[in-house]
Each structure stands twice: as structure tokens, then as C-alpha cells.
């Protein structure tokens, strides 16, 4: 993945000003406060994450057990600072799967979700979840796997996904979010090593 600072800023300004995305139930801008500041972008919408009604996943943390809303539930747990052990177990399970099956990830994802668009959307959200998990738990392995996902051409094709045709496309937002978080996190780690 090679994404410029300018691209992250310009796409960020477009996405953050779109009311349909600001109110999107997938919470595309939650958990980004520090990273948005790093890029001198306006803050995301003030969203309070309510997890009182969520149904926690009970299946064993594995790629094969991912349901349509599993990742959103786990991300909400991370943002709310609750059920972090559960989120960590899922992050570990998904990380291991992506690492061991990296070369066949596309075919396995297509088999599970039926179409390339659905597969891409879900795997991008896996990448978003791994970065969120790293941000909370500071397990560098999650960042490592997210970086490898950005090298997958089917997830990050050379031509950027059309972001607003016909609706704001969540896949494009996830690509942007991953690029934003990764660029920020690598700078943060580098600065930490500088002491």
C-alpha cells in the first residue's frame, strides 16, 4: 500500500462532510480522534456507543464463524472499553487465520460471502477491526496483519474504489480508514522508538 498524506486528507474531508456517512450505522469515524488530529482533519461526529442491547457472539472466535454483524459488535466493545477479552480473542483468531491463509484469503472470503464485493467489504472490516484492536490492546501482531491485508491487490486495487457511486461506498471508507490509521500508527511507533 502506498497512500499519500494528501490523498488521506482529501478523501477524509469528503467523507467527514458527508451526512450519510456521519450517520452510518457501521460507525466509520468512531475511534479515530487522535489519527484525525494527526492529519489535521476535522473531528468525526460525536457518537456515543451504546452496547447495552448488543448480543455478544458466542461462537468460537474463527473466520468461519463470522456473521454479518460480528465485527461491528466487537468494534463497539472496543470503543466502549467493555468485553475486551472477547474482542482480543477474536482479534487473535482472525489474525491467525489471515496470516496462515494469506495466499488463499480471497478465494476463502468469496466462498463464504458469495461475491467479490461482499468478500472485499468483510475483509476490509476485518482490517479495520484489527487496527482498532491494536489501538486498544497494543498487540503489534494485529497491526502487522492489517499491513499485509493492504498489500492484497483485491482489497486495495491500484485504482481506488469509486467512493460515491451510487451511494457512499463503505468499502472505500474502510480503505481510507485503514490507510489513515496505519499511517498514523507507524508514525507513532517511529516516534516512540526515537524516545
Amino acid at each position: 500500500m502506498h497512500v499519500s498524506y494528501r490523498f488521506i486528507r482529501s478523501e477524509g474531508l469528503r467523507f467527514l462532510s458527508d451526512a450519510r456517512l456521519r450517520d452510518h450505522p457501521a460507525l466509520p469515524f468512531v475511534g479515530l480522534e487522535v489519527a484525525l488530529q494527526f492529519f489535521d482533519l476535522p473531528p468525526g461526529p460525536a457518537v456515543s456507543v451504546d452496547i447495552s442491547d448488543i448480543v455478544l457472539p458466542t461462537a468460537s472466535p474463527a473466520f468461519k464463524n463470522l456473521e454479518a454483524d460480528t465485527l461491528l459488535i466487537l468494534r463497539k466493545c472496543l470503543y466502549a472499553g467493555k468485553h475486551l477479552d472477547l474482542a482480543a480473542r477474536w482479534a487473535e483468531g482472525l489474525m491467525r487465520f489471515c496470516e496462515v491463509r494469506l495466499s488463499s484469503l480471497e478465494s476463502r472470503a468469496r466462498q463464504k460471502w458469495g461475491t467479490i464485493s461482499a468478500a472485499r467489504l468483510q475483509l476490509l472490516e476485518v482490517g479495520v477491526f484489527l487496527l482498532d484492536a491494536y489501538f486498544v490492546q497494543r498487540d503489534l501482531r494485529f497491526l502487522n496483519t492489517a499491513l499485509k491485508l493492504t498489500d492484497q491487490k483485491w482489497l486495495f486495487p491500484p485504482q481506488p474504489l469509486l467512493a460515491f457511486w451510487p451511494q457512499p461506498r463503505l468499502a472505500a471508507v474502510w480503505q481510507w480508514r485503514m490507510s489513515l490509521m496505519i499511517t498514523y500508527l507507524l508514525a507513532e511507533i517511529g516516534a516512540h522508538h526515537d524516545g
Binding site: E99, L143, N144, L147, D151, L186, I189, G190, H193
Partner: peptide, 13 residues
């Protein structure tokens, strides 16, 4: 913990 091959971006760090 089990670790996997490190991505070049982290190796650079």
C-alpha cells in the same frame, strides 16, 4: 505468543 513474518514497514522501524 506466536509471531508471524514481519511486514517490511515494521522491519524498517
Amino acid at each position: 505468543r506466536q509471531y508471524f513474518i514481519m511486514h517490511p514497514a515494521l522491519i524498517r522501524l
